[in-house]
Design a protein around this nucleic acid. Structure first.
Lengths: 170, 170
DNA sequence: TTCTAATATAATGCG
DNA sequence: CGCATTATATTAGT
């Protein structure tokens, strides 16, 4: 659709066709197109993408050579690298986003489990909150001290240690 | 061969500002090729941005009217809305990403604290894992029983309860 | 200052 | 239309 008014953009007069017509790949290209806007062939894109891996920031000389090698104008090479860098950046951002979401879910699950675990810990003595509570801790410590003192008294008053018996009751 | 841009760098700054009346006709006489790419004035952008708030998806009729009102081609209006929508979308995505990062960090901290809390809960008696452990619970119960037995024995052997003293030591 | 990388925006074509 | 891509213009940084 769209009222393709192709004329408008062409004012520049052809932008000097890149005579790239006979590309090696020989892929596609059957529609009539004389516009300044031209899509790169898959072969050209492949070369550029292969190049950008080792050298994301080619200088002008490198760009010129690459332009000749690929068959496009140095200007286009410059544009291509600029746009490609932003594209890669966006892709990274998107990947990070996904990773973050996954990590978030994992951590949230862990969080829930730990919350539950903390809530399920109840003191066998006071039946109250766990030892993170100061009062409870005091309570337990008193109990321990009481126990120790009782043991001591018991051992002082009796010549034998009756605790063994107690331990083995169960 | 370098496509050095000898263009006037004067553009920086105000960009001319209003351009109220007839800017459209291309008062710009460029000796070079006339580019299809033309930047909108801030006033035009302002109108479009104001419009998109209430109506992000104008139909063709609305676009035509808006085009006349703003002083650009309907086609450009269409482009502008398309590009603007994706831009807004990307901005939202970025914001979400940041929010996610913050949330993630918050939860991580909370998890760390909970982990620490769980690890710090040690039985004052056996020094082992907390009451979620079956063996530990048994151990604590035995201790409680032992304590009770010792108390009983103590009260049997002495006419007074010496525990009060113990409790008040601290 | 000039240069260029990064960015924002305009415009094209495809599915 | 949404989306990716190509191209141009402007801003920022060394």
């Amino acid at each position: 659709m769209s009222s393709s008014v192709t004329g408008a953009a062409a004012g520049s007069g052809g932008v000097g066709g890149f005579g790239a017509g006979g590309d090696d790949g020989g892929s596609n290209n059957d529609k009539r197109k004389r516009l300044a806007y031209k899509r790169l062939t898959s072969a050209q894109t492949a070369k550029l993408e292969k190049y950008i891996i080792d050298c994301p920031h080619p200088d002008e000389a490198q760009r010129r050579q690459l332009a000749e090698e690929v068959g496009i104008e140095p200007k286009q090479v410059k544009f291509w690298f600029q746009n490609k860098r932003t594209q890669i950046k966006n892709q990274h951002e998107r990947a990070d986003n996904n990773a973050l979401r996954a990590e978030n879910e994992r951590i949230q699950n862990e969080n829930l489990l730990m919350r539950e675990a903390l809530n399920n810990i109840l003191c066998p003595f006071c039946g109250g909150p766990p030892s993170t509570d100061e009062d409870h801790e005091l309570y337990v410590q008193r109990m321990a001290l009481e126990n120790a003192h009782l043991k001591e008294q018991a051992s002082q008053n009796y010549s034998f240690n009756g605790l063994t018996e107690i331990y083995n009751i169960y």
